[in-house]
């Protein structure tokens, strides 16, 4: 998959935009948390698309955002 760009996103309707981002986010999250990947991706997709694009381009900030979401999810499930 080639990297997702803002112009590619802008060309797609809003529902498609979240789907495009989710399809790229999911494998990255799955590599870290296979069991929680679906839920964590769902949580991160609530962030606005411009920030998500930035996260997709910076692994370190994406990793900390994923760990933050895992903590929130586990607290929520407790």
């Amino acid at each position: 998959q080639e990297p997702l760009t803002a112009s590619m996103l802008a060309a797609a309707p809003p529902q498609e935009q979240k789907q495009m981002i989710g399809e790229r986010l999911y494998p990255l999250i799955h590599a870290m948390h296979p069991m929680l990947a679906g839920k964590i991706t769902g949580m991160l997709l609530e962030i606005d698309n411009s920030e998500l694009l930035l996260l997709l381009e910076s692994p370190d900030s994406l990793h900390s955002k994923i760990e933050e979401a895992v903590a929130v999810l586990q607290a929520h499930q407790a």
Partner: peptide, 22 residues
Amino acid sequence: SSSVNWPPEFRPGEPWKGYPNI
């Protein structure tokens, strides 16, 4: 939200149910 089905789970290849109520 404190609902049980939060967060809406994403599954590759399937439309994400979390949209449009975000």
